[in-house]
Design a protein around this nucleic acid. Structure first.
Lengths: 349, 349
DNA sequence: TTGTATGCGTTATCAT
DNA sequence: ATGATAACGCATACAA
């Protein structure tokens, strides 16, 4: 049916193995026969069968992408397309293909990953999130299957290749910034507390408060999904408090939009009534009203570096685990404002 | 190394072929042995090798995604993640996997598609754009390889399965809308003129003008990339005209943002000085200032329906080509305003 | 430098 | 109801 290596061999008057060698550009084949074989390939429109090749080779020339929830969920947040952009550039360079798992529940995703891995569909995996005690990561570790993590593992930092920002420091910087603006009641709107990135940033936030002798109030800490809706939920809870915060550290721009929208529905003004800083610096951050002050975490680069590391892991059998810290920086826009001095004034700063 | 069907067979005291039948849940195997085999599979943590299966089967249980330019380019526009969301839901239901081709130039993408197809990596292809005289589409047609097109083919409409909006009518509606607002000088900011969607909408726009006895001016037609930058370029050209338009039909929200931004840099007000309507109704449309009046083309559904069709094409050998028209509707926000009556007043409407 | 034979892990076609 | 065996298309160790 489809043309195989044998057809080419026949046409070029050589053995199939010779054709195979020509494909691999084996130096021990004479230029003459190479040319002859290549002509035959061109003429017949031959293309190698990947499945057969993978089978004989045990390599698939493809890497798998694992997102939290299936693509139809994750892609709601522009974070993922953007990491994938970074990944894609390097994957393309290496002539690899990209494979996306689909699955709604954690169980389904886990199954999908097992199938990818054991089924020999992919040579390596990129884990695009890091959560506490993740089955999938445990599985990969145990299997000693090449993978890189976008994010930080909770433990085994030394043995797991991972690429992230210094989220502890980033959150601390942000809180410091808010405090320097005179804010003392700062809310934290984060993602699931099972996400390591949430944990890290919460720690950084806490550290900042403590170093400024500010109280750390549990009721200022909210955990929601990284979506607009999450932000809406969060801000409702916070504003219902007896003493609502005057500033917010929001972990995701999308959430921040939810916050902004709800606040404006409540007739509250950002930044006059409340200041907001968030993370990711998505394109939307520039377009919202007011412009959103946001931490640019270099999402693209996160993906790019992760792909580079994974490729190393795949090609160099005894590559040591790596850790790459991608720089971040605060982009100031119009969502923050200095607070007029408090009456209670503990005089900090 | 990895556990194969043979290991399972040995452990369950059956032949490999029997194990294979159990996997396929062949009814001619007794429940007893099925149970025994399954226990062995569980115990050994067996997972079938996809490559071997595909090889024997000539089916990959995967479909390929083809975007204009590689992911790292295309994903700059939220359109693509959103179509993929739609695709992903149905692909996941059918337990298929998703392959993404990577490639920068048209040549590279073409090569990638050939490799996917002839290499047996995928059982079908989703073409996420439609351009005039597209090599890739021609190749797929010629190969009679199952594929569905998101968009409309320029010719062979009857024989190519495609999913789109009625873009002619949509653009006509939009232009009518602008005209009903009193605008007579309406600019058209579109994508590449090689894209069928551009062609269709341009036709609809023209039709609207003509039916209202309004002049169709070449210099009001701009073609740029579907990115913010494209919009910036476009509006600069238009505003440099002797009689710049008072209203714009912009083909993409991202472009529209570019337009908005540049206009505001020029100290021009939307909608007071100029009205803007665009397409796609991305999340950003709601967040921009002013809120962007945009045509919701149901991107998610576009992807969803396309995947459904492709699955039919794959599973039913003699499935006829299909055409699905996804509805659209105009979402009015604040970027358009009625024009005060013109002095020259041809009195239309 | 090139050809021969074998294996990669499954499925499918015969048998029994 | 189950087993033996031959593909599937390619790569590679071993010969020549």
């Amino acid at each position: 049916m489809t043309t195989t290596i044998k057809d080419v061999a026949k046409m070029a008057n050589v053995a199939p193995s010779t054709v195979s060698r020509v494909i691999a550009n084996n130096p021990r084949i004479s230029e003459q026969t190479k040319r002859r074989v290549r002509e035959a390939m061109d003429y017949l429109g031959y293309h190698p069968n990947f499945n057969a090749r993978s089978l004989a080779n045990r390599s698939a020339q493809a890497i798998g992408l694992v997102m939290p929830g299936s693509a139809d969920k994750a892609f709601q947040n522009p974070f993922f397309p953007e990491v994938i952009r970074g990944i894609s550039t390097i994957v393309h360079e290496k002539e690899y293909a990209l494979y996306m798992s689909t699955g709604q529940t954690e169980e389904e995703i886990y199954e999908g990953v097992m199938r990818m891995v054991q089924g020999g569909r992919v040579d390596g995996i990129l884990l695009l999130y890091s959560s506490v005690d993740d089955r999938i990561m445990n599985y990969l570790v145990e299997k000693k299957f090449p993978f890189a993590l976008v994010g930080k593992p909770l433990k085994d930092e030394q043995s797991i290749t991972h690429i992230d920002n210094d989220n502890f420091q980033a959150a601390r910087d942000v809180a410091d910034y808010l405090i320097s603006l005179g804010h003392e009641k700062i809310g934290f709107v984060g993602g699931s507390s099972r996400l390591v990135v949430t944990i890290d940033r919460l720690l950084g936030y806490e550290k900042s408060l403590r170093s400024h002798q500010l109280p750390y109030r549990e009721d200022y800490i909210i955990h929601e999904e990284f979506l607009e809706k999450g932000g809406q939920e969060a801000i409702r809870k916070l504003m219902a408090l007896d003493k609502p915060p005057t500033a917010l550290l929001v972990m995701d721009d999308l959430m921040a939009f939810g916050v902004l929208r709800t606040l404006s529905e409540m007739q509250l003004s950002v930044p006059n009534d409340i200041s907001v800083v968030s993370f990711n610096n998505l394109m939307l951050a520039a377009f919202s009203t007011p412009g959103l002050t946001s931490v640019d975490i270099n999402i693209f680069q996160l993906g790019y570096e992760a792909a580079v590391c994974l490729m190393d892991l795949i090609s160099k059998p005894d590559q040591k685990p790596m850790r790459v810290a991608v720089p971040y920086h605060l982009i100031e826009r119009q969502s923050c404002k200095a607070r007029t001095v408090q009456k209670e004034g503990s005089g900090s700063m």
